[in-house]
Nucleic acid binder design. Structure first.
Length: 510
RNA sequence: GGCGGGGUAGCUCAGUUGGUUAGAGCGCGGGACUCAUAAGCCCGAGGUCAGUGGUUCGAUCCCACUUCCCGCUACCA
């Protein structure tokens, strides 16, 4: 039976152009998706855009466009980003699509039927200029006016009719679910935050708005549109054709294996989403991973600080794979990380150019001169050769576990360690000094070529383009890659041609 | 304020269920080699493991207190 794997990025809110945070979430997700693909899984990788809400409605008005055309335009920039980042996504969902609307409205109706939605009033201190509600403890009285303590702007008491979701009802069930599924929320530190939040008591959630119209209408009351989370989160199942739960996509891929998200939206994914699903009697996803943020130097990137590193700029200047590699290798996954041109350049030079790229180069160049550009025959592995080659089969399970548990850094550490070993092996065995011992020379070359093959396969999920370039040496194409084959020490067939490879990563002169 | 996490080499981080000389990568200094993108390999310098006190034969790791940093504390996403 086929093995299935469903992984998602957040759907992005396109009120601004794509930034490093979007790129990071997407690249991370792509790494997992690609790994699973070469490990024999049928993978469904979903990304998309969340296009409803007041901000979008306003932004479209400001641009003198109708919201629908406006969304088409901005959603496209995110779709383009998928190509720019070389994502292997299976689908791109937009919340303005009919398939999504149908899905959301059906889910709403289910929640209504189960008694989890009721009509009431949403009220609070509202600041028009801040577009935000404030609690009693967030306002103060100044010159006979109520103002926000934070912004100082005037607030007024607003009441609005709204539908509510009985989130409070699900508090215990959620805690029970976290208890029974200790790996549901990762990383562990963030799980604690969610649990303590839920334990502190859940209030019912306002899930509709009458104050604007750009959204999916509440089926039973056309004056209301369905508010953000109930709309947005549903994308994860609407892409699988929910409510048609007998179709293949849904049957095979739901519940999702992991939703990759940023830590800023963890609560919505780890609390609201499972609560909606529990209420609608839909299985809950297996895992929510809330990753950290990419900071620039010490600070969060912001326009005012002028320290924004635009992913597109970086890709234009350094290439895509260096950025992908950097984000995976240099950021401690789960924690916040930093990026700077300086660190990126160091990483490119030491890891990609000197270590990986140069190893491919020195081995293939040597093989060209000494083996007539053919995979050598007459090989006889010694203990040294077997030791370095067997490390991969010995770690096959570990590597799979790393990916299954989102231990990205452990996965990369193994690769980097293998590269050090490979360079050391080549150095220590001195093939250039073995020209009168052809069998030994051939064996060293063969072993080294196998190392290139194995390491390149492991790198494929992270830097797919470069990995494929490298595997071209052996005429291995994308569709032929299997992760499992890194356990094979005799994969390369004698006398097959070794294709010359270009320099994979140019060193950056500093 | 409450709850939680953290302060380990110049930088980024790992680690110790408490036990002889505390680890990696990068950066830095030196060496031998030459197949390679002057890459790679070897050796080395550099840390009172935030501070104070306690438990213990012994603490960087356990406990208490101090100090600094960060996160969460609901309807922008």
């Amino acid at each position: 039976m086929d093995k299935h794997y469903y992984i998602t990025t957040p759907i992005y809110y396109p009120s601004a152009k794509p930034h490093m945070g979007h790129a990071y979430s997407s690249i991370i997700t792509d790494v997992f998706a690609r790994f699973k693909k070469i490990d024999g899984f049928k993978v469904y990788f979903l990304t998309g855009t969340d296009e409803h809400g007041l901000k979008i409605q306003r932004a479209s008005e400001e641009n003198n466009m109708n919201p629908s055309d406006f969304c088409d335009k901005i959603s496209k920039t995110f779709k383009d980003l998928c190509k720019t980042l070389n994502l292997s996504n299976s689908d791109f969902i937009r919340t303005t699509e009919d398939r999504h609307k149908k899905s959301v409205q059906h889910l709403w109706t289910e929640l209504e039927k189960s008694g989890d939605i009721y009509l009431s009033k949403y009220s609070g201190w509202y600041s028009v200029s801040d577009e935000a509600f404030y609690n009693d403890n967030e306002i103060e009285t100044k010159d006979n006016y109520k103002v926000s303590k934070v912004s100082g702007s005037k607030v007024e008491w607003v009441e609005e009719e709204s539908f509510f979701f009985r989130l409070s009802k699900w508090q215990d069930k959620l805690l029970e679910y976290y208890e029974k599924n200790p790996q549901f929320i990762l990383p562990e530190s963030r799980k604690n935050e969610v649990v303590s939040f839920v334990k502190s008591g859940l209030k019912d959630l306002s899930v509709s708005r009458k104050s604007f119209s750009w959204g999916i209408k509440v089926p039973s009351d056309k004056d209301h549109v369905i508010y953000v989370w109930l709309d947005a989160l549903t994308n994860y199942i609407s892409a699988l054709k929910y409510p048609d739960i007998s179709n293949d996509l849904y049957k095979k891929f739901w519940p999702a294996d992991v939703h990759i998200i940023g830590k800023d939206i963890l609560r919505f994914h780890a609390v609201y989403w499972p609560a909606f699903l529990l209420a609608a009697k839909i299985p809950v996803p297996k895992r929510i991973y809330g990753h950290g943020w990419i900071l620039s130097g010490e600070e969060k990137m912001s326009k005012s600080k002028g320290n924004i590193l635009d992913p597109i700029d970086i890709i234009d200047n350094y290439g895509l794979d260096p950025l992908r590699y950097y984000l995976i290798k240099e950021v401690s996954f789960g924690n916040d990380g930093t990026i700077s041109k300086d660190k990126l350049e160091d990483c490119i030079n030491s890891d990609l150019a000197n270590n990986y790229g140069n190893f491919c180069q020195r081995v293939t160049a040597f093989a060209e001169k000494n083996c007539n550009s053919k995979i050598p025959s007459k090989i006889n592995f010694t203990e040294v050769d077997n030791k370095i080659l067997n490390k991969f089969s010995e770690n096959l399970t570990n590597l799979r576990n790393y990916i299954n548990n989102q231990k990205l850094n452990s996965y990369v550490d193994f690769i980097v360690g293998s590269l050090f070993d490979a360079n050391k092996y080549f150095n220590d065995e001195e093939p250039w000094a073995k020209k009168n011992d052809i069998e030994r020379l051939n064996t060293i070359i063969y072993t080294s070529l196998e190392l290139i093959r194995k390491i390149s396969i492991m790198l494929y999920p992270i830097i797919p383009d470069s990995s494929l370039k490298s595997l071209k040496i052996f005429d291995i194409n994308e569709k032929d890659i299997t992760f499992d084959s890194i356990k094979d020490n005799n994969f390369l067939k004698a006398n097959n041609k070794i294709s010359k490879t270009d320099i994979l990563f140019k060193k950056i002169l500093k």
